[in-house]
């Protein structure tokens, strides 16, 4: 199944850093979310886009993760040649990631 089945997401930006939230719809899916969305998997998912470190902050009381991805925006919002320089569409790509379960 896709991550989209259990979580929603929004992307923000700061310079060359992309910051994506991933929030479980239901509290009981938080643990599953934690296991599915690891720094390693996120890097893999954004291969060719994210060129720096991925840090994942946990917000258990909100059943949410906060992904901070460095060197993710083609050199930064101002000079990126991408059509979506803020990387606003990255959250939708993340939500299409396959995770275990049905």
């Amino acid at each position: 199944m896709k991550l989209r089945e259990i979580a929603h997401s929004r992307t923000g930006d700061k310079g060359n850093i992309s910051n994506i939230s991933v929030i479980a719809y239901r509290k009981e899916d938080y643990e599953r979310l934690r296991q599915a969305v690891t720094a390693e998997r996120v890097k893999q998912r954004f291969e060719g886009i994210v060129r720096g470190e991925v840090t994942i902050y946990e917000l258990p009381k909100l059943a949410a993760l906060n992904l901070v991805m460095e060197k993710a925006l083609g050199g930064g919002v101002t000079k990126s040649l991408a059509i979506d320089p803020h990387g606003k569409s990255l959250s939708s790509w993340l939500l299409d990631m396959e995770i275990e379960g049905e």
């Binding site: 923000g12 910051n19 939230s21 719809y25 902050y57 949410a64 906060n66």
Partner: peptide, 16 residues
Amino acid sequence: KDTVAEQLIYEIHDPS
């Protein structure tokens, strides 16, 4: 709670 959570975490980097 969902709309508020999305905005709460928006662009905050390290939540603490």
